[in-house]
Simulated assay, not measured.
Amino acid sequence: MKRLLLVATFCGLTAGAAFAEQKEVVVATTGGVFNQAISEIWFEPFTKQTGIKVKTVVATDAQMRSKAQAMFEAKDVAWDMINNVDILAASAQNRAFTEDLTEFCKQFAERRDLANDTCNASGVKITYNATLLAFNADKFKGLPPQTWADFWNVKDFPGPRALPNFGDPWRVLAAALLADGVATDQLFPLDLDRAFKKLDQIKPQVSLWWKTGDQSQQGFRGGDYVMGMIWGTRVSALKAEGQPVQQSYDQAFMLADTMQILKNSPNGEGAQALLKFYLETPAVQAKFAEKFGVTPVSQDAIKLMSDEGRAKIPTSSEAFKKIIKHDPAWINDNQARILEAWNAWMLK
């Protein structure tokens, strides 16, 4: 998602009347409960304070990137912001069609409550979210699945599986290698041949290859799978519905959802104001984190969360010990090769 070159007379959010003269900010989201929550918790209070309306459009992660790039190349940009994981946000491909926020970020340089690199050249991190193993607790009573080796163990943990297929497959490949016994500190660079060989074993058990977070939720509700790799935000949403879902942070992949502003967007100033509002409003961050069970970027926001909410997110050193340390540079350098190999494997 992307940011602020406001002239001095408009530098504060109190200049709502002036901003209200501008066009609405158009933000691409993955839809479903995420779209509803981000609108109610963040966008609506922003509109109330500034007068700037926010419109959302729904797209998968892959569609966001491909359409944003296509709009930029056609010199016909209709969106203002997209949501990406931090690794892809920083890639050369994405940086080519998104704004450099270096100047915008200078105003937050002294904010000690913000996590390191929250505001950076490629975008603004809004939450830290895990991609993890989730399962139907009603199906696995007693000793539940905890690791990717358990995910591959269909004898002791039977039932259909779910895996993501939204154009960013490195986590699935990493999980396959972990299931095959690769040590966490030896995971990168990923051995693609070995990973696909391991994936061949589980492919017949995968009943859902989801492309959006909403689809992963619908699949769980409908009983399409009993165990899957999904986003922690979606687990929290399912729990809030009363669904019997549980998760394991053991070997989870922790990434930051990052908002990027598109180059030549229709309302770049409004988009920057939207990001500024988020970073300067810990209460919004706290409420969003409570809703989805994610870690906010501000320590002040964490303090505003309930004890129950803080207990659900990986903030402790013990929780982070179980999380996989990935190699962003290698992933970005090999992104095209990984995706080409993945698409060929999916067609087998």
Rank of each mutant, 00 (worst) to 15 (best):
E21H: 05
F46R: 09
R65S: 11
G16K: 07
Q36D: 11
V85F: 10
D76P: 05
M71G: 06
A8Q: 10
R65N: 10
V77P: 07
K2E: 10
D86N: 14
P45G: 06
V85H: 11
D76Q: 15
V25G: 12
A18K: 03
R3L: 08
Q36K: 11
A28Y: 04
F43C: 08
F10Q: 12
A37H: 03
K48G: 07
F43S: 08
A62L: 13
A70I: 03
V85A: 03
M64G: 04
S66A: 12
T47K: 15
A8D: 12
A18L: 11
D76M: 07
A74V: 09
F19R: 02
N83R: 10
M64F: 08
V77M: 05
T14G: 03
T56C: 08
M71Q: 15
V25K: 13
D80W: 09
Q22G: 01
V77Y: 08
Q49T: 08
V54P: 01
E44V: 07
F43L: 03
T30F: 01
F10V: 02
A37W: 02
V26A: 05
A70G: 06
T30A: 09
Q36M: 07
A74R: 15
K23V: 02
M71S: 08
F34R: 07
G51L: 04
T56I: 07
